[in-house]
């Protein structure tokens, strides 16, 4: 089975490049002809995760593997980790700084929104070390593109 693998490095506090990884992944998925609604869900989940790395961590990476059935995205960062995952998953809970909020983020919607967009979601974190998200979205059976632009 064919699997296309993409890897992106994401730096902490790099707000200038924020979204580039997600933007590139989104373009690849579109070119592969995956249904636009599914592509959008993957883009939203990846973008939220990318912003999380930039805002909260010491930097990290996004690994996407695309096979004929699904897109699996592993987001791993170095950094503070999450003390209380249950709390972090709660809509509205946020530890983001005022600066981040001024950029339009840090509303405490990121993790819940990622979970809402995907079919399988797992989060692991070791406080003081890392956070890892595993995001899977199935796209097969939705190959037919309606209309396009």
């Amino acid at each position: 089975m064919i699997t296309i693998k993409l890897k992106y490095q994401v730096e902490k506090d790099d707000f200038m490049k924020a979204g580039q990884a997600s933007s590139n992944l989104k373009k690849v998925l579109k070119q592969l002809g995956i249904n636009s609604k599914i592509v959008r869900k993957i883009a939203i989940a990846t973008y939220e995760a990318e912003m999380n790395i930039i805002i909260h961590s010491e930097g990290g990476s996004i690994d996407a593997s695309i096979d004929p059935e699904k897109v699996k995205i592993i987001v791993r960062d170095r950094g503070p980790g999450i003390k209380d995952i249950e709390l972090a998953m709660k809509a509205g809970y946020s530890t983001a700084s005022q600066k981040v909020r001024e950029l339009g983020f840090g509303a405490g919607m990121g993790l819940p929104n990622i979970k809402r967009c995907c079919d399988e979601f797992a989060i692991r974190s070791s406080f003081g070390e890392y956070t890892e998200l595993s995001i899977t979205i199935y796209h097969s059976g939705n190959n037919t593109e309606e209309g396009g632009e």
Binding site: F15, Y47, F105
Partner: peptide
């Protein structure tokens, strides 16, 4: 800011 456009792109 550019994040608004990035968000628009994703959506």
């Amino acid at each position: 800011n550019p994040h608004t456009v990035r968000t628009a792109e994703m959506l």
